[in-house]
Design a protein around this nucleic acid. Structure first.
Length: 153
DNA sequence: CGTTTGACTACGC
DNA sequence: CGCGTAGCCAAAC
């Protein structure tokens, strides 16, 4: 890992290690990645479900500055199945292009079908060896669609 | 220094 | 394609 940065102890590094294992043709979500990392001391579990996702976003934001080929940041999307980068940004276009190239995002849609392409998570032994938790399944509607949710930023 | 700002999401209206 | 908000943290102003 060539990137050095201050962070809550190890959190960002764990995010990168997890994201590194998402294979081509699959995607994961901010919240799913967060669900594998135990909540830091003092963070209420019910809050962590939401806060952790945001921290994962922070971790990836740092990585994308370098675009480290070992860390497939483009395979991490929000729980709706869409890119969380600003709508018209270069990064969003790059992400969508890569996801389409990997065959998980239709050319005529902005959304990945999480039920079909969602990642099952790292090898359980790999997780256990690092003190990480089994990933929480991606939450889907009865339809199998990702939930609707507005963008905040 | 104090304030603002984000690659988020579950929940209450 | 509902909207606003809370929750915490690190960085940038």
């Amino acid at each position: 890992m060539s990137i050095i940065l201050p962070d809550r102890p190890g959190f960002y590094a764990l995010v990168w290690e997890i994201v590194r294992q998402v294979p081509a043709g699959r995607v994961t979500t901010f919240s799913q990645v967060a669900s594998m990392i135990p909540p830091p001391e003092g963070v209420k579990p019910e809050d962590y479900a939401r806060l952790g996702a945001r921290w994962v976003g922070d971790a990836l934001n740092r990585v994308s500055l370098v675009d480290d080929p070992n860390i497939p940041w483009h395979r991490v999307i929000n729980v709706r199945g869409t890119s969380s980068l600003p709508e018209n940004s270069e990064g969003a276009a790059l992400q969508r292009g890569r996801l389409r190239a990997e065959g998980v995002m239709p050319p005529d849609s902005e959304a990945v079908d999480l039920a079909a392409y969602g990642w099952e998570g790292p090898d359980p032994a790999w997780l256990a060896a690092r003190g990480l938790l089994p990933p929480k399944p991606i939450k889907l509607n009865a339809d199998g669609d990702a939930p609707a949710q507005m963008r905040l930023f």
